[in-house]
C-alpha cells in the first residue's frame, strides 16, 4: 500500500470513528461537535474522490451551517430531557443493530459488485459542455442539463421555509425570528464579524463567479454569504428581519422565480421548457446563478433562525 492509500484508509477509519462517536455520545453537545468534525473530515473524503464542488458544499453546509442549527437547537433543548426509560430494550437494540449491519453489508456487497468500468454520463456532459459556454461541468449540469432538479430543489428550500414559519404561534405571526446569537455583545465575536463579513462577501461572490469555469457555484458561494450573515447576527450586530418584510420575501423567491422565467422564456423562444438559447447560454446561466446565490444566502440563515419568536411591531 502506498502512502496515499494509507492516508485514505486512515481517513476512512477516522470518519467512521467520529460517526460512531456522534451516534454513541451521551451528551447532545458532544455529539454535535462530533458531527461538525465529521462533516469537515467528510469533505476531505470528497476532495479525495476528486469532487471538489461537493467537498466545498459539504464543508459549508454539512459541517458549518448544520452545526450552527444543531448547536442552537441543543442549547434550547437543554431543559427538556428525554426520560431514560424510553431507551429501547436490549433485544430491540440488538435487532436494530442486526438490521443496520445487514443494510450496511448488503450495500457494501453491491458496491463491490458494481460493473467495471462504471457507466458514466461524463462523455455526454463533455460533448454538450461547449453549448452552455461554461467550463465547470457541474455548474452546467446543475443549471442547464438537469435544471429541473435544481429548480425543484430551490422550491424545496422555499417549502421548508414556509413549513418552518408555519410553526410559529399565532401571536408571533409576521414577527421576527431570533437567530442564534451571543447572550450579550462579546468583543472578540464583534471584532471577528466586523473583519470577516466583508471579506466573506468578496470570497462568496468570487466563488459564484468562478463557479462557471472552476469548482464553486451558487450553492457554495451562497452558503458562504449565508455564513457571513449568521456571524453578523451571532455577534449581535444585526437582527433577523421580520418574516413579513417584503424585501425578505422577494429575496427568498428571487432565485426560483428567475429560474422559472428563464425556463418559460425558453419555452417561448426555443420551443422547449428550459431550452436556453445557445448564444446567451452563458450570460443566462450567470444571471440565474446570481439570483440563486441571493436566495440561498437568505434562505439558509432564515432556516437556522427558525419560526418567528417575537410579536410583530
Amino acid at each position: 500500500m502506498n502512502a496515499l492509500g494509507a492516508v485514505d484508509l486512515g481517513l476512512a477509519l477516522l470518519v467512521l470513528a467520529i460517526a460512531g462517536w456522534t451516534i454513541a455520545a451521551r451528551e447532545a453537545f458532544a455529539a454535535i461537535v462530533g458531527y461538525v468534525a465529521y462533516g469537515l473530515l467528510l469533505s476531505i473524503v470528497w476532495a479525495r474522490l476528486f469532487a471538489v464542488d461537493v467537498a466545498m458544499t459539504e464543508a459549508a453546509i454539512g459541517g458549518g451551517v448544520t452545526g450552527v442549527l444543531l448547536i442552537s437547537a441543543a442549547a434550547r433543548l437543554r431543559q427538556a430531557q428525554t426520560a431514560e426509560d424510553e431507551r429501547p430494550t436490549l433485544p430491540l437494540r440488538l435487532m436494530a443493530a442486526a438490521l443496520s449491519a445487514l443494510a450496511a453489508i448488503a450495500l457494501g456487497a453491491v458496491i463491490l459488485s458494481l460493473p467495471e468500468p462504471g457507466p458514466s454520463l461524463a462523455p455526454l456532459a463533455a460533448k454538450n459542455l461547449a453549448a452552455t459556454g461554461v467550463g465547470n461541468p457541474i455548474t452546467a449540469v446543475l443549471i442547464a442539463f438537469r435544471s429541473f432538479d435544481t429548480l425543484l430543489e430551490k422550491v424545496v428550500l422555499l417549502l421548508a421555509i414556509i413549513g418552518v414559519w408555519s410553526l410559529a404561534p399565532d401571536r408571533y405571526w409576521g414577527g421576527a425570528p431570533i437567530a442564534p446569537r451571543a447572550a450579550r455583545p462579546v468583543g472578540a465575536l464583534t471584532f471577528l464579524a466586523q473583519l470577516v463579513a466583508p471579506i466573506g462577501v468578496v470570497v462568496g461572490v468570487h466563488m459564484v463567479w468562478v463557479g462557471a469555469d472552476e469548482p464553486g457555484g451558487a450553492f457554495q458561494g451562497g452558503a458562504i454569504l449565508a455564513a457571513m450573515w449568521m456571524i453578523v447576527m451571532m455577534a449581535r450586530l444585526s437582527e433577523a428581519p421580520p418574516v413579513g418584510a417584503p424585501w425578505l420575501r422577494a429575496a427568498l423567491v428571487a432565485g426560483p422565480a428567475v429560474f422559472l422565467i428563464a425556463g418559460a422564456s425558453g419555452a417561448v423562444t426555443s420551443g422547449a421548457f428550459f431550452a436556453l438559447p445557445q448564444a446567451f447560454a452563458k450570460p443566462l446561466i450567470l444571471i440565474i446563478e446570481a439570483f440563486m446565490t441571493l436566495s440561498i444566502a437568505v434562505t439558509l440563515p432564515m432556516l437556522v433562525a427558525g419560526p418567528p419568536r417575537r410579536a410583530p411591531l
Binding site: 464579524a193 466586523q194 463579513a197 466583508p198 471579506i199 462577501v201 468578496v202 470570497v203 461572490v205 468570487h206 463567479w209 468562478v210 453578523v232 450586530l237
Partner: peptide, 29 residues
C-alpha cells in the same frame, strides 16, 4: 478580489461591484 481572482479580465466589473458591496457592509458593521 484581484488577489484571489488572479488575472481574469471579464471578472473585473464583477470584482468592482463586489468591492463596493463589501465596503458598504464593512462601513455598516
Amino acid at each position: 478580489w484581484l488577489m484571489i481572482g488572479g488575472n481574469d479580465l471579464l471578472g473585473l466589473p464583477v470584482g468592482l461591484a463586489t468591492a463596493v458591496a463589501a465596503s458598504f457592509v464593512s462601513l455598516r458593521l
